Amino acid sequence: MKQSELTLEMSRYEKGSVSRINHFLKVYAFAKAIGEGEQFPSELQDILETAALVHDIGIKPSLEKYGSSAGEYQEKEGPEAARVMLENLGYPDELIKRVCFLVGHHHTYQDIDGQDYQALVEADFLVNIFEGNMDASGIREVRQRIFRTATGTRLLDTLYL
């Protein structure tokens, strides 16, 4: 699927928050690279790329509703916002269902089920490590505890270790 329309819609949705727009664009780029590097089938790649673009869509409603963008609130509020946006853009139901699952679990690191989930988590970490100024010991711990794909691990090592 072409992701340009979704990229524009997410940019409109996040209008005024350059940092959130930059964040989802960076996560998208890393997710795309991981999926392609791991040779995901096209359907799985589409799910991953779509999820990467909308993974933090729950921040805005979380801030409005709870005054916080904590991961638990993002996971609670994000799936419905993603579903509405993806339905309005004409995405297929099965893709929407999986993307909403990923949006609702992208801060949950145990019981990762699926290559798309793994790649999304790794892509998000690649960006969050930089944005959060994680120190070397934290990066090594995340590498050991979270990273499983060869491509994601190579990117982590190249960028940070």
Rank of each mutant, 00 (worst) to 15 (best):
residue 94 E to C: 10
residue 73 Y to W: 07
residue 86 L to W: 08
residue 83 R to D: 03
residue 96 I to H: 00
residue 67 G to P: 12
residue 95 L to H: 05
residue 67 G to N: 10
residue 69 S to D: 15
residue 67 G to E: 08
residue 93 D to N: 11
residue 74 Q to D: 06
residue 78 G to I: 02
residue 66 Y to R: 14
residue 75 E to S: 09
residue 67 G to S: 10
residue 64 E to V: 11
residue 91 Y to H: 07
residue 71 G to W: 06
residue 70 A to K: 15
residue 89 L to N: 00
residue 64 E to H: 10
residue 70 A to M: 14
residue 78 G to E: 00
residue 75 E to Y: 06
residue 93 D to H: 11
residue 86 L to V: 10
residue 64 E to N: 11
residue 93 D to Y: 06
residue 85 M to E: 01
residue 76 K to W: 11
residue 85 M to A: 02
residue 87 E to F: 05
residue 88 N to Y: 00
residue 67 G to H: 09
residue 88 N to S: 04
residue 76 K to C: 12
residue 70 A to P: 09
residue 85 M to H: 01
residue 96 I to Y: 00
residue 89 L to F: 00
residue 85 M to P: 00
residue 64 E to W: 07
residue 69 S to H: 14
residue 79 P to M: 05
residue 79 P to E: 03
residue 79 P to G: 02
residue 84 V to N: 03
residue 80 E to C: 04
residue 92 P to M: 10
residue 81 A to R: 07
residue 81 A to E: 11
residue 70 A to E: 15
residue 73 Y to F: 12
residue 81 A to C: 05
residue 87 E to S: 10
residue 72 E to Q: 15
residue 73 Y to D: 00
residue 84 V to C: 04
residue 75 E to I: 09
residue 82 A to S: 05
residue 89 L to I: 02
residue 71 G to K: 08
residue 77 E to L: 08
residue 72 E to V: 15
residue 66 Y to T: 12
residue 84 V to R: 08
residue 93 D to L: 13
residue 71 G to Y: 06
residue 72 E to G: 11
residue 76 K to P: 09
residue 80 E to I: 04
residue 87 E to K: 12
residue 68 S to L: 09
residue 64 E to F: 09
residue 76 K to V: 10
residue 88 N to G: 04
residue 86 L to R: 06
residue 77 E to H: 03
residue 91 Y to S: 05
residue 82 A to D: 04
residue 83 R to M: 03
residue 84 V to T: 11
residue 94 E to R: 13
residue 81 A to S: 11
residue 76 K to M: 14
residue 77 E to N: 08
residue 74 Q to Y: 08
residue 93 D to I: 08
residue 87 E to I: 10
residue 78 G to N: 01
residue 76 K to D: 12
residue 85 M to C: 04
residue 80 E to W: 05
residue 68 S to H: 04
residue 92 P to T: 11
residue 66 Y to P: 10
residue 74 Q to T: 13
residue 80 E to G: 08
